[in-house]
Design a protein around this nucleic acid. Structure first.
Lengths: 243, 243
DNA sequence: CGCGCTATTGAGAGAGCTCAATGTGCGTGG
DNA sequence: CCACGCACATTGAGCTCTCTCAATAGCGCG
């Protein structure tokens, strides 16, 4: 199994119990690999792609640019994510997708996915569920941006990132990679980068987290979760929060 | 055809081209009607419902309550919406659903929808697409809450509401019902109700809109859209913006 | 070893918040 | 049909969280 199919099976297998047939079907889907340098666009707003992306290595993000130069990052995507599978049914992309780090992407054509689903209808449900979890993550972001101050908002972001990384085996103990700048974080959370810098200082001083060299370490899960009002239900996976 | 099945066929037919079989299958799904008084919960956070809701008349909203009493409204739902169809694949509901006005709801059991999809796979895609549009609306909200000030944010909300209402034939000329309080609006958009009141005054004084007796009238579409940076692409429907 | 990107810190400004008082409209009951 | 009460809306005043601008510091890479 290649890296790419491994990621795909791991991801879908985690949110949906697959039988041997389905697993095999997924593992043999043709995937075309491509690498993008950081800041490169993978898909642009207005595009009508004929394929879905699978993030195999590195981070990507969906974003939108506003008239006066503002940027809103809609989501970050980590290995195993299918950041534009909605393209299967929404022909015109309403936001751009860019590489955050150097990113390895696998492309799977829509036709192939349609065939896969036609032959294994339960896989259709699995992909659908994947997009539903994506939407649940949006909801959680809305709650944070609408009704939480910067400190809990950022704390919540760290909880989420860590658990998502854990689900794809990219954590060690209480640490994981967080390969984004403070500006990217601020554009994702609706803050200024200056304020993010100050809030991070507080989170460090109060020993909730450590964050250096793009590595996030969660020092005190229970306090961080309480601060963030974090409840992992919305990720809709069997996740155990580290203690 | 009952009101409920009419709404269902209208909605799905609008986002997906149905053949006669599929239309008939949708039109004959058993639906159990129920009425909720305003402010009543229809589904609560943590519930594991065995059925989906179809809004037949009135408005509903998804929301979440935070520890210190804050409320975040995640979305409003109008006739034709299927506000918890994600329950098909996400067993535990991660937010509550409540009646905004007196609301008539049709309940369709998950089992029935699964059967429907098994027999008419394209209907599965149609429902899936419905949830993808839902997610696109979330994205748009995130952009507004993260990077737009109150005036364009509220303006955008009005554009969206009007077009969604138009898609289900609930507009007349440039007006539609907007049966929500300013407090509900503020909880949806991440503002205080006081500030919403002031912004509405501005929008009225500058003759973008009129809003009395829960009726919204858009007085100048092009100026309002420009103010809001509104681009209807994200609704992913054939929509013509009034001129 | 120096350039460029990222992070940090200070200072002042502002959008939006909270608290509180007043105004308005509508439904209910006498 | 009027009066009352309640929910909603409006307005004022002061406050605060977060922003912008700007300068400095640190780090990684060629």
């Amino acid at each position: 199994m290649t890296d790419a199919t491994h990621r795909l099976v791991q991801r879908i297998g985690r949110i949906f119990s697959l039988n041997e047939d389905e697993r095999h079907a997924l593992a043999t889907v043709p995937i075309i690999m491509h690498t993008f340098a950081s800041h490169q666009d993978i898909v642009q707003e207005g595009d009508q792609p004929g394929q879905c992306c699978l993030i195999v290595a590195g981070w990507a993000c969906r974003y939108r640019i506003l008239q006066h130069g503002g940027r809103q990052i809609l989501s970050f995507h980590i290995p195993g994510d299918l950041p534009n599978i909605h393209g299967l049914h929404l022909p015109v992309t309403d936001h751009s997708l860019a590489a955050v780090t150097t990113v390895t992407v696998g492309f799977v054509s829509h036709a192939q996915i349609h065939d896969l689903i036609a032959e294994h209808p339960r896989l259709g449900s699995a992909f659908w569920k994947d997009t539903l979890i994506d939407a649940a993550i949006y909801r959680e972001r809305i709650v944070g941006m609408g009704r939480k101050e910067a400190l809990p908002r950022i704390a919540h972001f760290f909880c989420e990132v860590f658990l998502r990384m854990q689900a794809v085996d990219l954590t060690t103990q209480h640490s994981c990679s967080l390969p984004i700048t403070q500006t990217e974080m601020s554009d994702a959370l609706g803050l200024s980068s200056v304020h993010v810098s100050r809030v991070l200082r507080d989170l460090r001083h109060q020993e909730f987290i450590a964050l250096d060299h793009r590595t996030l370490t969660i020092l005190d899960w229970s306090r961080l979760m309480a601060l963030a009002e974090f409840n992992p239900t919305y990720l809709h996976q069997d996740i155990s929060v580290p203690t």
